[in-house]
């Protein structure tokens, strides 16, 4: 089904309008498997609206979204997980009172969809989910903190856990919404390394403000402005593009 050339995720003439205002205005996006694809743009460019359409939080007013060639435009958010999409949140969204391990275990269990409607099985017999959680803990370097409530992690660690929960579903496509937002300068290299590593075995759609991260790990960059795609290309071509500079300068002016 998936080959190197067919897009993993594709949007066609995607539009999200709030009344007369079009937050997303006819976006064609094409994410190739095995790449880190970043969407950037000045504030109000429509990045987050686009992201919400992709995750299923908002239903686009026009156009379609295809995952592996399958139309998922009308799939609800929870239904997209089982099809191979997982997301992180821009504002940390964890189960604060549950342990770090339980956060990850729930994330691993969620991908099984309706099978979690199991009234009778004990938690500790669901070995597969526990193993996944253990594995991801290891990967996030959080094994030592497995037992404490997620709300007691440092802010940087919470951001890491936020991304970690998305990979528990073993998705084909990871959607990361500003993973470094609110992170201290000291924690950012850890996150950059983590995303870089994840990029080796996942396809990633990244929304990010921090340009040094964007330029260092992206394979493809899409620049959005006023709901439309302004430029798309490699980091180098985007860096040197005059229109991109103007869009960002326009914001500053």
């Amino acid at each position: 089904m998936t080959n190197a050339h067919a897009p993993l995720l594709e949007t066609r003439r995607l539009e999200l309008a709030y009344g007369a205002f079009k937050a997303v205005d006819g976006v064609d996006l094409c994410i190739r498997p095995g790449t880190i694809h970043t969407v950037i743009g000045p504030n109000g460019a429509g990045k987050t609206s686009l992201f919400h359409c992709l995750t299923g939080e908002r239903r686009p007013t026009h156009g379609s979204i295809l995952l592996d060639g399958r139309d998922i435009t009308r799939q609800p958010a929870h239904g997209r997980v089982g099809l191979g999409m997982a997301r992180s949140f821009q504002i940390t969204s964890l189960f604060q009172e549950l342990s770090v391990h339980e956060n990850l275990r729930l994330a691993a269990q969620g991908v099984d969809g309706w099978k979690a409607l199991n009234f009778w099985q004990r938690l500790d017999t669901r070995k597969r989910h526990i193993d996944t959680a253990d594995e991801v803990l290891e990967r996030l370097n959080l094994t030592e903190r497995a037992g404490i409530p997620a709300g007691e992690l440092s802010h940087g660690q919470q951001r890491i856990l936020e991304v970690g929960m998305a990979i528990c579903a073993r998705p084909k496509l990871l959607l990361l919404d500003e993973p470094t937002s609110g992170m201290g300068i000291d924690d950012i290299p850890t996150m950059t390394r983590l995303i870089g590593e994840l990029g080796r075995d996942h396809s990633i759609l990244l929304i990010e403000h921090n340009m040094s991260i964007v330029m260092s790990i992206s394979d493809t960059i899409t620049v959005m402005n006023r709901g439309r795609v302004l430029v798309e290309g490699t980091p180098d071509s985007v860096r040197n593009d005059q229109r991109v500079r103007e869009a960002y300068l326009g914001e500053a002016a």
Partner: peptide, 25 residues
């Protein structure tokens, strides 16, 4: 203490996240 029960706790803690993890709230 079943997977169902643990999911209820997850919903109590954070509905939006639970939905994003694939649970039909």
């Amino acid at each position: 203490s079943s997977p169902f029960g643990s999911t209820l706790l997850a919903i109590r803690e954070n509905e939006a996240r639970a939905a994003a993890l694939g649970y039909d709230i």
